[in-house]
């Protein structure tokens, strides 16, 4: 009686757990141009760039890198470029489609973020002028918005400091 219960219970538990153990976790890319690399190292070859909102299947975890598959390719991504949180909505626009063809989901609200909004809004500038802000202060904000660092420059900075994906 006891043994029979144990066997039955183990079978039920195995049925419940096995499909899950076999399936990979789904994570999402947080920012466009996230690198998919050949190995769990920032110095390895870049297989492609993933776009924001791309869903990836995590196959393995190794330190600060996750091995993922997306759009038929498998590679490694720095883990903090990924999130478990699924993007809301699903109304992604054309320019965010993944170069690798992964599943796309992103919110319409956030699709307006990043590169599509440039410069100090005319309403902000008019209001600042009305309130007596100087040309110098307004120009300072415009200069601040124009000042950029190139991705390669940031990459080199991280490598030199052994930071981010280059950290040990």
């Amino acid at each position: 009686m006891h043994q029979s219960f144990l066997v039955r219970f183990s079978i039920v538990l195995a049925i419940l757990l096995l499909p899950h153990l076999a399936s990979a976790e789904t994570w999402y890319v947080k920012k466009s141009a996230t690198k998919l690399q050949a190995e769990a190292s920032a110095r390895s070859d870049v297989l492609g760039k993933l776009q924001k909102g791309t869903s990836v299947k995590v196959k393995k975890k190794s330190g600060k890198f996750f091995q993922v598959s997306a759009g038929g390719k498998t590679g490694w991504v720095f883990r903090f470029k990924l999130t478990k949180k699924a993007p809301a909505g699903g109304q992604g626009d054309g320019d965010v489609l993944s170069a690798l063809g992964g599943d796309q989901k992103m919110s319409a609200r956030e699709s307006a973020s990043g590169s599509s909004i440039r410069g100090l809004s005319p309403i902000s500038e008019q209001h600042a002028r009305k309130k007596g802000a100087t040309d110098e202060s307004i120009q300072a904000v415009k200069n601040m918005e124009k000042f950029k660092v190139r991705p390669e420059e940031l990459d080199q900075f991280l490598e030199e400091g052994k930071l981010g994906e280059y950290s040990q």
Binding site: S121, A133, T134, S137, V141
Partner: peptide, 17 residues
């Protein structure tokens, strides 16, 4: 985000002032 940035930009002018 568009409105958030407009408000933030206006406040940024204020910071410099």
């Amino acid at each position: 985000y568009k409105e958030e940035k407009a408000i933030g930009g206006r406040l940024a002018v204020e910071v410099f002032s």
